[in-house]
């Protein structure tokens, strides 16, 4: 226990400031009214869905949970079920084998809801494109509010996309 506490004290707090929202990431205009956004802006539940990525974007979503980005301090939490979620964070080109599962996950998420597509594949199909096995970009299957490019996008860019979706300005 002593060593554990010593390590915590030695490292200290490494958390950095969150990025500001960026309206250029928007795929469509804000759908939610101010009252809803005020609540989402303070307590946002996110459900991640991997619709067919190479798992590169997942690495960065994991990294977003590192102490450098104090997600829960921002009121953002990853939840275990779409039924608990306000926002779906979707990665990958949508594999045809995942199309139905993605639709059902979207349908299971209660209104009002938001969708953020992550990565070049989520934005335009990326290196995999559209084929017999891939439906390409996420917006080909469910409505997308914000799309964050990158292969993979950095944790800060993913956080920026999430904050853009809820129009939250929480720098500092």
């Amino acid at each position: 226990m002593y060593r554990l506490l010593k390590q915590i004290a030695k490292v200290g707090i490494v958390t950095e400031a969150a990025p500001a929202p960026d309206a250029s990431l928007r795929a469509i205009a804000q759908r939610l009214d101010d009252v809803v956004l005020k609540h989402f802006g303070r307590a946002l539940a996110i459900r991640h869905v991997d619709a067919g990525s190479c798992n590169g974007c997942e690495l960065e979503i994991h990294a977003l949970n590192s102490p450098y980005y104090n997600l829960e301090g921002l009121g953002i939490k990853f939840v275990a079920s779409p039924r608990h979620a306000d926002l779906l964070l979707v990665t990958g080109p949508v594999a045809r084998n995942m199309e139905e599962a993605l639709r059902r996950t979207y349908d299971a998420t209660p209104e009002p809801k938001l969708v953020v597509a992550i990565g070049d594949c989520g934005c335009d199909g990326g290196v995999f494109g559209e084929s017999y096995a891939s439906r390409g970009r996420v917006a080909n299957v469910i409505p997308v509010d914000v799309a964050v490019p990158g292969c993979p996008p950095s944790p800060a860019a993913i956080l920026q996309g999430i904050l853009t979706a809820v129009d939250a300005c929480r720098a500092g």
């Binding site: 084929s131 096995a133 292969c151």
Partner: peptide, 30 residues
Amino acid sequence: YKHKGIEKRFTALSLEDGARLAGRISGDST
């Protein structure tokens, strides 16, 4: 569930361009 036609995709690419696709078969092992 993640089958996205990678082996078919290779056949549409030049040998050199295939390198970029190969680096995205499993991102954690790029």
